[in-house]
Design a protein around this nucleic acid. Structure first.
Lengths: 111, 111
DNA sequence: GCACCGTTTAGCCTATCGGCTAAGTAGTCG
DNA sequence: CGACTACTTAGCCGATAGGCTAAACGGTGC
């Protein structure tokens, strides 16, 4: 994964994490070690299609993957992408010499 | 800060971090150890009021604070709120027994 | 006090988000 | 194959996000 891909991944991941329900879904699936779409939907007050959309978004962000088990779809957390977002915060480590780190940290920038 | 406050803080922080330009602003201000609004605006391709709005949002999220220096406003990163978001990821630590951790992880939930 | 500079506020406009309901699809079981 | 179950897709709709320009505002310096 090169720098540009990483940046794009970061973008979709942070976008996905921007919604409280999606963060909660992720956490719930993690704690239970995987869940079917129905189980997830059952735990929230939203209509089923709403959850379905959140699931798709999370999957597109690479934070969830699913596997078909007959009728149901079984979702599990993909920790790699999650770690990517987690490590974004490392840029802010207090004592570190920021200069020594690789460049290309963000968005469109001048000069 | 009680659990509800924490949840609300998490919400605004993740919302603020959802935009690539805002992540970049935060990072830039961190690396430079503080910057004036003008310096920040100068580094991005957006119109000044657009950056000004991003700055306000970041400040409302508690991720930036500013101090008046005569004509200019000098912004610095508030690391406490940043740490809050950073620690959200701790919920997903691999080997940990999630059950042992404090409850109240997310959003409106049934049962 | 007036002009100017740095920055914000107001307000507009388009696009995306995130809910919903209704309709479709795919897999299972009698 | 037909009915049921587990979801998804389509499509509507109101609210929010995020650009912009123009106008206001608060300090400084002549």
């Amino acid at each position: 994964m090169d720098a540009r891909e990483k940046l794009e991944a970061l973008e979709v991941v942070f976008t996905a994490l921007a919604h409280a329900s999606r963060r909660q879904i992720l956490l719930t699936v993690h704690i239970r070690g995987g869940m079917s779409a129905g189980e997830i939907a059952g735990r929230f007050e939203y209509a089923w299609p709403t959850i379905s959309r959140h699931l798709r978004l999370l999957e597109e962000a690479g934070l969830l993957t699913h596997e078909k088990r007959g009728l149901t779809r079984f979702y599990t957390v993909d920790y790699e992408r999650l770690a990517l977002a987690h490590h974004w915060f490392d840029w802010f480590e207090q004592g570190s010499d920021a200069k020594a780190r690789p460049r290309s940290t963000g968005t469109k920038q001048r000069r």
